[in-house]
């Protein structure tokens, strides 16, 4: 490799500059996370020291023990899991069927319907809070899991449908025709051929929907005022009161909140690589 390629001059920036640039970029992106982790093991006094301490001499886990055993965070964590998993699952199921319809069938008004799906995404959050609240109250769903799950489903569904539609469209239609000739029904086509080949698309939608709902703040603040349904972002905010903020606890809780997302990303990473349809057709 080195013998031949070294003679060719590569156009563009020199390699060392690209390396330095990338490292800088990564440092800037990761700095808040580093600060979050470091701060979570500092004592309150160390947090306010100037100049800042980059790594405390005696890391303390007092913040974690406070967060895990003396606050509502574990309960909020459970609520967040239920609400995010519930809305992600629901959005995924609906998105699969809606996207398959958009991707595979011709029907009147399809372009209009497809753009209407996006309109929900375009409305500013503040504009729909009040109508949603009234609706939820009418349905008796304020301060319930179902209320949050349905609201989150509404905000994640449009983009999920668009993502999956474009993914389904890329699966060669001959594969389904072959399956139909082989005796498959439409549903069998979807579940035995198209879905297994769309795993990277499904994974992206899951990560998108889960992360969006996991981090959502405004709706949770308005529709879940009882501690039995409050989610983690609200929990974080509760550490800062009118008089003081327990930054150590906020940081520890933030770490707790970040971990599931990090794990989700790492476990799905393999799927994003794609290339699942290699060898299907001519290739």
């Amino acid at each position: 490799m080195s013998g031949k390629t070294s003679k060719l001059t590569r156009p563009g920036l020199p390699g060392w500059l690209i390396l330095v640039g990338s490292v800088l970029l990564v440092l800037v992106c990761l700095f808040p996370f580093w600060w979050m982790v470091v701060s979570s093991v500092k004592t309150l006094r160390e947090l306010y020291t100037v100049p800042p301490i980059w790594w405390p001499d005696t890391p303390t886990f007092q913040n974690y023990s406070n967060v895990l055993f003396q606050s509502n965070i574990p309960r909020y964590f459970l609520n967040s899991v239920i609400v995010s998993a519930g809305s992600t699952g629901l959005a995924l199921i609906l998105a699969i069927f809606a996207s398959y319809g958009f991707a595979r069938f011709k029907f009147k008004g399809k372009p209009l319907l497809q753009s209407l799906v996006l309109v929900a995404q375009l409305l500013p959050t503040a504009a729909i809070i009040v109508p949603l609240f009234i609706t939820l109250r009418f349905l008796g769903l304020v301060n319930t899991y179902w209320g949050l799950i349905l609201v989150y489903m509404i905000i994640t569904l449009p983009l999920s449908v668009w993502m999956l539609t474009s993914y389904f469209k890329n699966i060669p239609v001959e594969l389904e025709e072959a399956a139909i000739i082989d005796g498959a029904s439409r549903l069998e086509c979807l579940f035995r051929i198209t879905l297994p080949l769309s795993l990277p698309g499904i994974a992206s939608v899951m990560v998108y929907a889960f992360v969006t709902t996991w981090n959502e703040f405004i709706f949770a603040l308005c529709f879940a005022t009882d501690s039995s349904v409050k989610t983690l972002p609200i929990g974080l905010a509760e550490f800062s009161t009118e008089f003081n903020t327990d930054w150590g606890a906020v940081m520890a809780a933030s770490v707790v909140m970040t971990l599931p997302i990090a794990i989700l990303f790492l476990s799905m990473q393999r799927l994003f690589v794609g290339g699942l349809t290699a060898g299907a057709t001519k290739g």
Binding site: E177, A178, I181, P196, L276, A280, T281, K282
Partner: peptide, 28 residues
């Protein structure tokens, strides 16, 4: 199609990429 008792070979072969040769052939 499945009631017509026909089988079809496609120009692009349309083999199911996530199945082995055995599963492809036995799918019907």
């Amino acid at each position: 199609p499945k009631e017509r008792d026909i089988a079809m070979v496609f120009q692009s072969y349309a083999l199911y990429p996530h199945m082995t040769v055995e599963q492809n052939m036995g799918f019907s």
